[in-house]
Amino acid sequence: MNNKNKPLFIILKISCIVLLPILFLSFANHRNNNRKVQKLIITRQAPLDSIQYITNDAIETLLFSVKNAEEYALKELKMNLLEKKLDADPMVENADIYLTIDGVLKVIIKQREPIARIIDHNQFYYMDIQGVHMPLSKATSARVPIVRGLNEALWEDAYLILKHIYTDPFLKENIVEVINNKKNFYARLRGADFLVCIGNSEDISLKFNNLKAFYKKASKDHFLDKYTKVDLQYNNQVVCHRTPEPTAPTQE
């Protein structure tokens, strides 16, 4: 090879080494971006992974209102915009969306978690695990206690009580209703006729531990139907009001 052409040859060789991979990569990206979405997979994070407060159909409609997900080319997808759409839904706490290498669009959502259903005159809504108002779901109903008569000024007090109920397996299973009357809170238990006077949220853990101990013993001794009211407001004790015994008719 002529020595004069050697530098030119080296430049061409280096250019090919640098440019060819870029061209191949550009071609591959162009081809990949024109591919269609292969599949849409929606999953929900625990503990609400088996409950659909927002359905899969509603999620797909929210994300792709014009056409089905599989009709979109990968280059048409704006991940940040799609995530913002889901995050704005009142049933969703947060969402993550990403594409796999084989063109599968994966949506992972964390749904908001209701802990109580509030009945406020003609309005119905949830309180969620963060203590925030949450609208009712159009898809399903949460199995949570009903709350009546809640004074908004006592919202924080109610939240502390209701969150404790929700996170305790026994209380979550058995307390079906909470009532706010003035500054006091009351509860009704599944299958029991007596009213539980909670008072306020002060010492709530101790109060509910006392209630569980009382319930366990009274249930074992078959005394649950003997009481009309169980008061938890007194220090480290449960005060029970018994059902009056029927009096025998007097004979004339």
Rank of each mutant, 00 (worst) to 15 (best):
N3T: 12
N5I: 11
N5A: 14
L8E: 00
L8T: 01
F9L: 15
I10D: 01
L12K: 08
L12D: 01
K13N: 04
I17Y: 13
L19Y: 01
I22E: 00
L25R: 07
L25F: 15
S26V: 14
S26L: 15
S26C: 14
H30M: 13
R31P: 13
N32V: 14
N33V: 11
N33A: 14
N33D: 14
N33Q: 10
N34P: 14
N34T: 07
R35I: 10
R35M: 15
R35W: 08
Q38W: 02
K39H: 01
L40S: 05
L40H: 01
I41W: 01
I41N: 05
I41A: 10
I42L: 01
I42A: 00
T43S: 14
T43Q: 08
Q45R: 06
T55D: 10
D57G: 13
D57T: 14
E60W: 07
T61H: 12
T61D: 10
L62T: 01
L62C: 08
L62Q: 00
F64K: 02
V66E: 02
E70V: 09
E70A: 02
L74V: 07
N80C: 07
N80I: 10
E83H: 00
E83A: 09
K85W: 02
K85A: 07
K85C: 08
A88D: 02
D89E: 06
P90S: 08
N94C: 07
A95S: 15
I97H: 03
Y98A: 15
Y98L: 14
I101Q: 02
D102F: 13
G103A: 05
K106D: 03
I108Q: 06
I109M: 11
R112E: 07
P114D: 02
A116N: 07
I118G: 13
I119E: 11
I119P: 15
H121T: 09
H121A: 10
F124Q: 13
Y126T: 00
G131S: 04
L136V: 05
S137W: 00
A139D: 05
A139N: 08
A139K: 02
T140Q: 04
T140P: 05
S141H: 04
A142T: 02
V144Y: 07
P145K: 00
W155P: 12
W155L: 13
E156D: 12
E156M: 05
D157N: 05
L160R: 00
L160Q: 01
I161E: 01
L162S: 06
I165R: 00
Y166L: 02
I175V: 15
V176F: 10
E177Y: 11
V178M: 10
I179Q: 04
N180A: 03
K182L: 13
K182M: 12
N184L: 14
F185K: 01
Y186F: 15
L189M: 11
R190S: 12
G191S: 12
G191Q: 08
F194M: 09
V196C: 11
N200L: 09
E202A: 03
D203P: 12
K207F: 07
K207R: 05
A213D: 06
A218E: 03
D221G: 08
D225Q: 11
K226N: 12
T228V: 15
V230L: 13
V230R: 05
D231Y: 06
Y234R: 01
N236C: 08
Q237T: 10
P244E: 09
E245I: 11
T247K: 06
P249Q: 02
T250S: 12
Q251Y: 07
Q251W: 06
